[in-house]
């Protein structure tokens, strides 16, 4: 491992640093005690976790995506929350309706994202909104099960699709 630090790219070192800060803040918030011993124990645990995840090679652009801008997420999450409320209300009405007006549909479509991270965000958002579940996820094609035909119709080229594509940049 001699010279490893020099070969280690700057971005990865930044990721290691940001992971340290995130984990340490996580520890402090969970513990809620600020005695020197507990804070030192926290630092020790964080270093141990970082060492393990470095060995597992999971602190990469996927495991710790600091290159995605926070601002994009700050506009994406509230939008997603509104979508979730809207579709959850739709599913609620269908569940409680005496006639159970559902029309389950399988739909295949091609997502606009290219990076694995964008695809995962899109698929997770689809699954998170009640009424649609991403069953198969690949760059070429998504297979989505929707509770109603109306929900299935609005999936391909949806606003969610465009927003997830915008997130990648």
């Amino acid at each position: 491992m001699q010279g490893g630090l020099r070969l280690y790219p700057l971005m990865n070192r930044l990721r290691l640093l940001s992971a340290f800060v995130a984990l340490y803040v996580f520890w402090l918030l969970l513990s809620g005690f600020f005695t020197p011993f507990l804070m030192a124990a926290g630092a020790g645990s964080v270093v141990a976790v970082l060492w393990l995840s470095h060995r597992m090679d999971v602190i990469d652009h996927e495991g710790h995506p600091i290159h995605l801008s926070l601002r994009a997420f700050l506009s994406y999450w509230p939008w997603l929350a509104v979508e979730i409320v809207k579709s959850a209300w739709d599913v609620t009405r269908r569940v409680l309706h005496p006639a159970l007006p559902i029309s389950p549909t399988l739909v295949r479509f091609r997502p606009r994202q290219t990076s694995p991270l964008g695809l995962v965000i899109h698929a997770n958002s689809i699954t998170l909104t009640p009424g649609t579940i991403a069953i198969e996820v690949a760059a070429e094609e998504f297979l989505v099960h929707a509770l109603s035909r109306e929900g299935a119709a609005g999936l391909a080229g949806s606003e969610m699709d465009h927003r997830c594509e915008a997130l990648e940049k």
Binding site: I84, V91, T92, V95, L100, T127, L128, P130
Partner: peptide, 18 residues
């Protein structure tokens, strides 16, 4: 109430999200 496995998942996701 839901008739099959996949539709039950949609119902359960109401619990999990909203």
């Amino acid at each position: 109430r839901m008739p099959d496995f996949y539709t039950r998942m949609h119902a359960a996701s109401v619990t999990e999200t909203l």
